[in-house]
Amino acid sequence: MAIAGPARLTRAPSVARPDAAGRPPRVGDTPLVRRALIGFVVVVGALLVVAPLVVILVTAFSAGWGGAVAAISHPDTLHAIGLTVATALVAVPVNTAFGIAAAWAITKFDFWGKRALLVLIEIPFSVSPVVAGVAYLFVYGLQGLFGPALQAADVKILFALPGIILASMFVTAPFVVRELVPLMQAQGRDVEEAAVSLGASGWRTFMSVTLPNIRWALLYGVVLCNARVMGEFGAVSVVSGNIRGQTNTLPLHIELLYHDYQTAGAFAAASILALLAVVTIIAKALMERQMPR
């Protein structure tokens, strides 16, 4: 990489000069610009990004360890945690399977409409979660396409776990595909074609040729998908009905506690999700080192 090494950090010259390795200076390498930009970024970043994380922890433990533990172990909070985990246990594996299938079809074959398919898959990134929730209401709700038939058959989808899972699957549908497609595109088809021509079955080819090459990108997509499923608020808020102790996922339960002026309890519950976010970010950083760039 053509960027100055640590030698520059200890003895910054007053004017941009060639560095120890003899590389010419680059734009913005003067100490003044450098310090000003790093200072600006670190200060604004601390105020905008770090402060929210800190305030969550401080408020969560404002009533002491006991208060936080009591808030988290309240039956309604435990139920919300269970519901969130159950949603992720269905939505994440389904989206992973979909992501692998879609990436295989898109990168290993040429067919008409491939670009349009990719655009369709990425739509959930641009659509407001509230819009997604409203849209699901018009499919499975009483006002919707299948609502009357579902009611006649006594099948509950909305305001119940299946609706929460469906809305979460919509929001996170592109997560795994987006990580796999660029990588599998870059890797081409030669190795798989060689394996098949040597007599390997499709499944065998995928498991022992493709999967080892994409495992980090796959895991990366799964981790991000899981974080989003567990934290989804807008879409789930519309389809869940917000029934306390029944259809409240953890983010919805946090909203309920917050509006009930149980601030410490809300933040104690929020600190679980903040912890999940921190673990997700650390896992992401570790996996990025494993992936070739």
Partner: peptide, 11 residues
């Protein structure tokens, strides 16, 4: 990206 929006909201 990783912090749930509701958590960011109350923070």
């Amino acid at each position: 990206f990783a912090l749930p929006t509701a958590v960011a909201g109350i923070a």
